[in-house]
Amino acid sequence: MPNQALDNAVSALMRETAEQCLLTHYRQLTADEIISKAADDVVTVADLESEARLAEGLARILPEAAIVGEEGCHADPSLMDRLADRLCWIIDPLDGTNNFAVGKPPFGILLALADRGEILSGWIYDPLQQRLCTAHRGGGAFVNGERIGARSTGQEPPVAAISVIFADAARRAALMAHIAPHYALVDIPRCAAEQYPRLALGVNDVSVFERTLAWDHAAGVLFLNEAGGRAARPDGSEYRVDRHLEPGLIGAASPALWDDLAARMQAI
């Protein structure tokens, strides 16, 4: 399917799903509609409804592609094996669930299409701002249909959002001791659907991620790289969705900012 036709179909599905499955529940959740999945990690009825609708719609758009959704993998981890398939849809039906559950932004939907572990296309939708970020490998990055180029904040020191939620105590201490002093730290949004646009749109300069699950990062990595920034493993290798359980990922608004941070990371 041509990229424009694919964009039209996917964006319509994302907007419809956000309207009917997310915004209808936003700030309306009852206690029994919020379920703990793990420590500091919840799922809501909105996540489940959104994933079901997205999976059904994506199966119509590209029936030959496998479907790997965050909540589906939580129920059946063997589904993650499909990330290496010839074609695979990757779904985060509600990124930023912890924010959504307490009635605050940011939150969004993340979708990606991969081929044998390589990311082909990505979509990031923020329902409150109605901001749709799209990217196709080799085709550039777009926000609401307008091509964009990644830009830094221009601040000195650069602005960094460093996620230590999933880092162990030693790793957290090393990041704070050896990386943090070189940057102006800001809070992480706990939402990749917000963090990657911040890196491309001049809000943040760099980010460090410890956990790199495909549904959280596939769309954002492609979007940032296609915008002219850089997202890659700390050793410089490409992020692949079929290796998403490996830790460590750096995102930056420019290759130069990425290089500076990666060099510092190698020392810890």
Rank of each mutant, 00 (worst) to 15 (best):
2 P>F: 05
3 N>C: 05
10 V>D: 01
14 M>E: 07
29 L>K: 12
31 A>M: 06
33 E>N: 09
35 I>G: 03
39 A>G: 09
40 D>T: 11
42 V>E: 00
47 D>K: 08
47 D>L: 05
50 S>H: 06
51 E>K: 04
53 R>F: 06
53 R>T: 14
61 I>F: 12
62 L>I: 14
69 G>N: 08
70 E>I: 09
90 I>Y: 03
91 I>F: 04
94 L>W: 07
94 L>G: 02
96 G>E: 06
101 A>W: 07
125 Y>R: 10
126 D>G: 10
128 L>R: 13
130 Q>G: 01
135 A>R: 00
137 R>F: 05
140 G>Q: 08
141 A>F: 06
145 G>F: 08
149 G>Q: 15
150 A>G: 03
162 I>M: 11
171 R>I: 07
173 A>Y: 05
175 L>S: 01
176 M>S: 13
177 A>R: 14
180 A>S: 14
180 A>K: 12
184 A>S: 14
188 I>Q: 02
188 I>S: 12
192 A>S: 13
196 Y>A: 04
199 L>E: 03
200 A>N: 13
203 V>D: 10
213 L>W: 01
214 A>D: 03
218 A>F: 04
219 A>Q: 09
220 G>I: 04
222 L>I: 11
227 A>E: 01
230 R>C: 11
234 P>K: 09
236 G>D: 10
238 E>V: 14
242 D>Y: 03
246 E>D: 15
250 I>R: 03
255 P>E: 06
256 A>R: 13
260 D>N: 12
